[in-house]
Design a protein around this nucleic acid. Structure first.
Lengths: 251, 251
DNA sequence: TAGATTGTTAATCGATTAACAATC
DNA sequence: TAGATTGTTAATCGATTAACAATC
């Protein structure tokens, strides 16, 4: 991803004998699954479950127990052989690894349906993300209130972006504008000093090397579904050597 | 993903000597990138570009040219050595592979901010997805109109789901409800006959083996950003043996 | 032909899986 | 101790990359 900053830069800059957990570099595939584990563990905790085995947790998360144990082993040895994992303790360790034990300020650019949906999205607030600003250019929506998960929020003009970042309240920028505006908004977020950006606009953006840009594409998964649905229709009817409906439903 | 239906089932059911393109099974990682290529190609086409090299297209898509060529080689030999790819032709081939050359009917369950955002999302309509229903249980929103990308759309009661699927208009179900309702809505989509489901609710759902369930998590990428932002803060200041700011920006 | 660029090969890398020794 | 379950190992699998022969 970067010729200038090699992938093992942080490992070598880490100094001798690791730093956190096992002291290893955690694989990207593992990081991507930690939010799932965290969510399911939170659910178990709320349900009053105090201990889970890797087999139980894996099933609830939709992964294999081997993969789960391997993933968790990268964080440290937080289980007890013969017993399993303490739900509360493991939840905390994953949260800590993901940086969810400290609050992050999020500024959202674009107060359309999507921007508003994000503000009221409970999955944000419940993980310590606080929307510190919902900005828009459209003059006639400025000042409108939006149902927020915690505090009441008012749509503000984009001109307030820079002061918001300068004040240290905003750590992560979220682009929820139409595709046309996305790149210029992105440039502005970077210029304001943000280094972590999440893009919801259907556009491929470019950023400097030291900016972490991630993307959620609302239609990519739909397109992959279309691919499979098409394959399903194309395939020679797989009814004969396919398990009975009963078997499939009980599986 | 399935003990009942092995991954190579479609390959072996495909009969001798392939079927489409190169006749190979296209890798999942490639499929996941095709929507990106398709979007960028669409943009090039609109910009009047008629030919691209793998190097140019790769750069615009944010991947390496080797990866791009490898990906495209799975679809067939659609380029010309010494010249590059015909933008229009390649766009069409990718669309065909993804199943975007035929219209797909989408029914959305949950007419909150997110459901409404999806209806007005231009990335859906522009790829041939037609929202054939926006359903909700909340009695007081039934009948409200929603700004749609193409036709005007009215929020209808969920009770109309079954007839909508039975009529053959809906091919893909989208869950845009709160987490609590997601599993029961999912069960109902399956019972109604849908086999392709996209879940936006922050819940891990279970479906029978023959149902393709995909998930878009609005907060997973944000959590991964938090992880990196935390690492950025933790790391011993990487100013010394790190490239100059100028180098990083120009890279 | 000479220059350019594809499609493919082979080597490398990272992720997944199954199995089991360690240990509660 | 006996039974259960973790953490780790080693083998397998799939994806990425660089290089280049094929060919326009």
């Amino acid at each position: 991803m970067s010729a200038v900053r090699p992938t093992d830069a942080s490992a070598s800059a880490m100094g001798p004998a690791g730093e956190r957990g096992t002291g290893r570099e955690i694989p990207a595939a593992t990081i991507a699954r930690l939010p799932v584990y965290h969510r399911v563990l939170t659910g178990l905790e709320e349900a009053g479950v105090s201990t889970v085995s890797s087999e139980e947790l894996a099933q609830a998360c939709g992964v294999s127990s081997a993969k789960l144990r391997k993933d968790l082993s990268h964080l440290g040895s937080y289980g007890t052989r013969g017993v399993g994992y303490d739900v509360h303790f493991l939840t905390y360790q994953i949260a800590r690894e993901l940086g969810l034990t400290q609050p992050w300020g999020v500024v959202i650019i674009g107060a359309g349906n999507l921007g508003q949906a994000l503000v009221s999205y409970r999955g944000f607030a419940s993980r310590g993300f606080r929307v510190v600003g919902l900005l828009d250019i459209h003059p006639d929506v400025i000042g409108h209130g939006v149902e927020s998960a915690d505090t009441a929020l008012e749509i503000r003009p984009v001109s307030e972006l820079e002061s918001l970042v300068a004040s240290g309240q905003a750590h992560i920028g979220v682009i929820a504008t139409p595709a046309e505006a996305a790149q210029s908004v992105c440039d502005r977020l970077v210029a304001a000093g943000l280094r972590s950006i999440l893009n919801f606009a259907p556009a491929v953006l470019s950023v400097p090397d030291d900016v972490e840009l991630r993307k959620v594409d609302l239609s990519v998964e739909l397109q992959i579904l279309a691919f499979h649905e098409q394959r399903r229709a194309d395939d020679p009817i797989p009814s004969m050597d396919t398990p009975s409906l009963g078997e499939a439903i009980n599986a």
